[in-house]
Amino acid sequence: MAVIQTKNLSKTFRVHKKAAGFKGSLKALVRREWLEKSALQNVSIEVSSGEILGLVGANGAGKTTLVKILAGIVCASSGDVSVLGHNPWQRSNELRRQVALIMGQKAQLWWDLPAEDCFLLLRDIYQIPHNQYRQNLEFLVESLGVQDQLNIQIRRLSLGERMKMELIAALLHTPKVVYLDEPTIGLDLTAQRAIRKFILEYRKLHKPAMILTSHYMEDIEQLCERIAIIKEGKIVYDGELSRVVNKYAQHKILSLEMAGPLTDSIRQGELANLLKNLRAEVLLEEQNRVRLKVARSDVAQVASAVLQKIAITDLSIEEEDIGNIIEKLIRRDGVKYDSGPAS
């Protein structure tokens, strides 16, 4: 059963326009021009317990607006929204005790306090029983390896340490719904990996319904089985991540390990002849390795031709990078999208 559910959800913001320069400022002082900006249009999604939905889209596509509506921060203009059977906009304490939002770009902890004081404050706000608080804190602190930073003021922590503290703060009350808005933004690779590993562990243990927005494809690939692509406020794809590759990847990558060094005679002879009549392009040439980008329909034909005409020791066929495919889907206009059934 879906924990998070939206149906035809729309949101319009009213923003004022100001003409450039001093004259424009004076004009705006007397009379303001307003612009209706549609942030979301008829968005319908469902997320079940234990599932992580990756919300993917360009800047300004509407990802964060959707998360804000689901978290009860912003009121929807129209449509239905239900989280654990509640309307988030009503912000009932019962719902808020079961929801968490982690924002990579916005600190939620109190900067002047050490992390542990912030956690104590949150224990009282969420009315977490003392034993449960102690157990949860121990588990979270140990999993994220921040034992030594607990008594340091938040403002004095590094970005990675602060983000880990934000995660602890958000998960102390063991929420059933977790929104992760770019949780790894600006972090180094080690910290990104640690946070991704922790999110997966947490999901395995508590099975919350999660929505993740991220511009890092590695986050999406490693954490989400299902994605929703949002473009200009509309969901243009909602389905399994693996389906994106099958459906939208137009190429495969052929990696060849040559028997000897890649000489100019091979490059201009056998290889050039091979590629002449086939839909393939060279991505990389180095020493004895060549990578070819081949149309999916031609893979068998190209592989067979390579085996016959070039002396190789190894051949492997890989899928195109999923990040590139999604990026193309987000950016390209006129792409015919085909949403799969929500898993």
Binding site: A71, R96, L101, L122, Y126, Q127
Partner: peptide
């Protein structure tokens, strides 16, 4: 600056 957001999330 959006600092209100966290108080809208907390059950308080």
């Amino acid at each position: 600056d959006g600092g209100l957001t966290k108080y809208l999330l907390y059950p308080v």
